[in-house]
Simulated scan of single mutants.
Amino acid sequence: MTQLNDFPNEILLHIFPHMPLKSLIAAYGVSKLWRHLAPLAEIIPPRRGLLDLYFNIMESPIFERTRPWLLDNLRPFNREAYIEALLAQHDYLPDDFRIWILEWPAKAVIAC
């Protein structure tokens, strides 16, 4: 049976740009190869920026201190409904903002 790590690196590099942020984050934990290849993939700039921001936040001591409070106060948020409500009020919504709203992990927020 063929495994993903058996594919040539070039094919893996073509897979990463199609992954949403959550999948890219998970890809870093798959193997050393994937952790090495993911930063080399041509991921769209807004998603690349979010990926970099995610890892910066995870390394922040502030995140660790605020995480218990955040998890206790996390509430459901219908992201698609929020986007639809914004579009009902405005003709245009920047793609970067849409990606941030739809893909940012809820449990990766820093509490204020």
Rank of each mutant, 00 (worst) to 15 (best):
L50W: 04
L87K: 06
L93T: 00
L24Y: 06
P39V: 08
I101W: 01
L40D: 07
H90Q: 12
T66R: 13
Y28G: 15
M19K: 02
L12W: 04
E103R: 01
R98P: 03
M19W: 04
P68Q: 03
M19V: 01
R65Q: 15
D72G: 01
W69N: 09
I25W: 06
C112T: 10
L93C: 06
N5M: 12
P39H: 10
I25Y: 07
L21Y: 00
F97C: 13
N5P: 01
V30N: 06
D91Y: 09
P20Q: 12
C112K: 14
R65C: 15
H18Q: 13
I99P: 01
I25F: 07
D6W: 08
N56R: 15
L70D: 11
I15K: 10
L24W: 07
E103H: 02
L87H: 00
N73D: 07
E84S: 13
L21C: 02
D6L: 14
P20G: 12
F77S: 08
P94A: 14
L21F: 03
L93F: 04
A108T: 03
A81V: 00
L12F: 03
V30K: 09
W69T: 11
D52T: 11
A106S: 12
A27L: 06
P20I: 10
F63I: 01
A85T: 02
L86R: 08
I110Y: 06
P76G: 08
L24C: 09
